[in-house]
């Protein structure tokens, strides 16, 4: 196939320019990848914090244990609820002794109320849902009081929203910069072969024929650049984890493949755009 042969011919003829293109693509995607990892790790950390969102419903004194157990069963059937733990007075004391030093010398549990500790499903941990579930619990006759750290949840969600919006905006900006840099690099490759392109057209090559090797070249450069960017991102995250003794999360296989496919797509579109623009001009 002449187009494939021409592509490899172009790599062999201008190895430095090809290496430069691949490296530029790799570093542009590396910046996007690093940013993606920061977002991913922040999201992961926030998700861990979110898992600690719980509603503690304190049961009124002298409520029979059977009734509390039945209520726990009912509450666990709420669509928002992941699990319900029934905490008896003794367990409440045990927990207090573990968490609060001043309870170490307390041996009587009567003054601590039993409670239902309600954990919510992922996606139902936002302030509105937490409020709604808390209100439902409050409405139960044998529930005295409901606590869920309202301020803390509101702050957490505000932080999550800010991180989300900033993530999307910065991610788009990084991706736009990557596309522009990659486009310029591919344009250099097209210009380096402008003489060949003009000769091709003079001897009767169609635009599609001229375009084909550049598209293949852009695709291959994109794939190689994407794979290199993935390796660089992995190395960077390993180094950061090693130096800071910090537990980090890396992209899973599908996101890695999406990254490489993204590189290929940018390479392909960058080439199509650059060569198309060049063809319209000559």
């Amino acid at each position: 196939m002449p187009a494939v042969r021409d592509t490899f011919f172009a790599f062999r003829r201008a190895p430095l320019l090809s290496a430069l293109s691949i490296t530029t693509i790799a570093f542009s995607l590396f910046a996007v990848g690093l940013f993606g990892l920061v977002v991913l790790n922040i999201r992961e950390a926030l998700q861990k914090v979110e898992e600690r969102v719980e509603i503690r419903a304190f049961v009124a004194e002298k409520t029979p244990v059977e009734q509390i157990a039945l209520a726990a069963d009912d509450v666990s059937k709420y669509p928002e609820v992941l699990s319900v733990d029934l905490v008896t007075q003794e367990e409440a004391l045990e927990r207090a002794r573990k968490e609060l030093g001043e309870f170490r010398d307390v041996f009587e549990a009567e003054f601590l109320p039993p409670s239902l500790d309600v954990h919510l499903k992922p996606g139902f941990r936002d302030p509105t849902t937490v409020h709604r579930v808390a209100d439902k619990l409050k409405a139960l006759t044998f529930i005295d009081d409901v606590r869920f750290g309202e301020d803390w949840i509101t702050q957490l969600y505000r932080l999550r929203n800010i991180a989300g919006v900033a993530g999307v905006a910065l991610g788009l900006a990084f991706a736009a910069v990557a596309v522009i840099i990659i486009g310029a690099t591919i344009r250099m490759a097209v210009l380096a072969r402008s003489r060949e392109i003009s000769i091709m057209r003079l001897v009767g090559a169609t635009d599609a024929y001229v375009r084909r090797p550049f598209l293949i070249e852009g695709f291959i450069k994109g794939v190689l650049g994407g794979a290199l960017a993935l390796c660089l991102t992995w190395l960077a995250i390993r180094l950061v984890s090693g130096y800071l003794s910090f537990q980090t999360v890396f992209f899973d296989q599908s996101i890695g493949l999406i990254g490489i496919a993204g590189g290929a797509l940018i390479g392909l579109l960058g080439s199509a755009f650059s060569v198309g623009r060049h063809l319209r001009r000559v």
Binding site: R201, A205, D207
Partner: peptide, 24 residues
């Protein structure tokens, strides 16, 4: 049409002062 120009050029031979050969 633009896409028919290659068809015309295939019926012509074009020669220039600067030869326009591919050096490699």
């Amino acid at each position: 049409r633009r896409r028919d120009v290659p068809k015309l050029r295939r019926r012509l031979g074009i020669v220039f002062q600067d030869f326009r050969l591919l050096e490699d």
